[in-house]
Each structure stands twice: as C-alpha cells, then as structure tokens.
C-alpha cells in the first residue's frame, strides 16, 4: 500500500549549503552518470548532441536576490546557485496519490523510491510534488526520481568513502552533505542547528527531510562616491619623504663629510 510509514527509524537526506555552492553542475553530471549506468531504467536524452533535453534527477537553478536594507544601508545583491532534487519528505504527497503502489517511502531509512516494475507512467506523482523532483523518462515511460543513491550508500562492493550519494561524493565545493537527520548528534543535524537549516515551501506541508543552509550575508557597501574622488591618489602618494632608520643615519653621516 502506498500509505506513508508513521515513523521512520532513520531520516537519511541531504543538507545543501547555498553559501558554498558555486553552480558548477558537477553534481548534476555525477547524478546522471551514476543513475544511467546503475539501478533502474537509464536516464535518457532525446537529442544528446543537440538542444538540451532529457531526464535529470538533480537540477541547478540560479536566483538573484536583493536583500532589504539594514538600518537604511543598502545591501549587496546576491547570486545563489540552487541545486534541487528529491527532498525525501516525511509527508510525501507523491507517494499517497500513486494508484499502482509503485511509489513508496521506506520505513527503515525514509528514502522515497519508485518500483519501476509496477509504475504505469500516469505522471500523477509528478503533479503532486511541489519541487519538480519527479520526471517521467521519455524512453522508458516510467517515473524517475532521486534514490539518494540507495545502490551506493549500502554497497559493500565499493570503498567506504564512496558510500555516499554520487552528488555528495563529487561536489568540489563541499556544498552537499549526506547523513541521518533523525539523529541530533549527526554531522548533518549539527550543521542544520548551527547554520539554521530551512524547509523549502513549508506551506505545502510536506515536511521535507533535506535541508538548505542559507547564504551568509555579503560585505556591506561603502558610502556612495560623489564623483570627485581620485581613487588612485592614496596609492600614488610617496611612501617616505625622508629616509629613516639606518639609511637615514648613513645619509646624514655622508652629508656631514
């Protein structure tokens, strides 16, 4: 049954640091690579060498924001790169709408998965997701979504440091963190507590497990310039008019000769 488990023993998920993400799309590529070559139907491209198309389980959006002035001092506008994949919600609306039982949330670790052998490709779960985390693969005709690399994190055939999702493993900026968010002492839970982790679209009532860390505020702006300033003048001024120290003594001594 596609009923949600009342509780899960673990809440495995990601913590994504919007302050650190540089928007390089390495996680997008690593995700597509791993999930095309491993578990389930491959993530197809419709026109691989032409216009951008195809199935992705992780996409990076970029936003610009103009923070409100603080004490009438205008704040610098910011660019934020925003990776977005399945948030493995506690109250996942995509699971309960599924008519075939293909979608489910695991009671042991909270991962939301699709059993592709039971999916009929109706797409209703993609409609139910507010985050755009699910896409029907246009070739396989089944629903694809982030598996939290369930075939890596428990995989004893790969090195221990590899047993994290492909996106986390590859991130060169260290902006992606994987762990158990049900355990208050885990690294990810401490990170969330320290930096103020945020739920995306809390008004949708999905209770996402994945957390986003806000970008830190940027430097403040200096006072506006009037247009008369010579900004190079301080750098062009002579450093020392009179020699000082040993050179000064030598200079004076030689003068007296």
């Amino acid at each position: 049954m596609t009923a949600l488990p009342t509780t899960t023993q673990k809440k495995l998920g990601l913590v994504i640091d919007l302050d650190t993400c540089v928007g390089c799309h390495a996680c997008v590529t690593a995700c597509k690579g791993w999930n095309t070559q491993n578990y389930g139907a491959p993530l197809s491209d419709q026109d691989p060498y032409g216009a951008a198309s195809g199935t992705f389980l992780n996409r990076i959006h970029s936003f610009q924001s103009q923070p409100e002035p603080v004490n009438d001092v205008p704040q610098l506008a910011q660019t934020t790169h925003f990776p977005k994949s399945c948030l493995h919600c506690e109250d996942a609306p995509c699971v309960t709408v599924c008519p075939t039982g293909a979608s489910y949330k695991r009671a042991e670790d909270g991962i939301v998965l699709v059993n592709e052998d039971a999916c009929m490709g109706c797409g209703l779960c993609a409609w139910a997701c507010p985050y755009g985390a699910r896409e029907v693969d246009q070739v396989a005709g089944v629903m694809k979504k982030c598996t939290l690399c369930v075939d890596r994190i428990y995989n004893e055939n790969i090195e221990e440091e590899e047993r994290v999702p492909a996106c986390v493993r590859t991130c060169p900026a260290g902006a992606r963190h994987f762990g158990d968010l049900a355990d208050p002492d885990s690294d990810v839970s401490r990170l969330v507590a320290e930096r103020g982790g945020m739920d995306l679209m809390p008004e949708q009532g999905t209770k996402p497990v994945n957390q986003y860390l806000p970008p830190r505020p940027r430097d403040t702006i200096q006072a506006p310039m009037a247009g008369e300033e010579d900004i190079l003048a301080p750098f062009l001024a002579p450093v020392a008019e009179e020699p000082a120290g040993f050179m000064g003594w030598l200079d004076r001594a030689l003068e007296k000769l």
Partner: peptide, 28 residues
C-alpha cells in the same frame, strides 16, 4: 495558497530567477 518564489527558495529580499537549469525545455 501562499507559495511564492520566496517560500520556494527561502532566500531573503526580492528574489527572481537568474538562470534556468537548462537552456531548453524539460519534462517539468
């Protein structure tokens, strides 16, 4: 319903899309 680009991104101030994830269309 109250969903805005602000609640979706949780970024502060006036938020707007700067760049889509892809140059083309996708399933979504």
């Amino acid at each position: 319903a109250g969903s805005t680009i602000g609640t979706a991104t949780q970024l502060s101030g006036k938020v707007s899309l700067w760049e889509k994830p892809h140059t083309g269309e996708n399933y979504l």
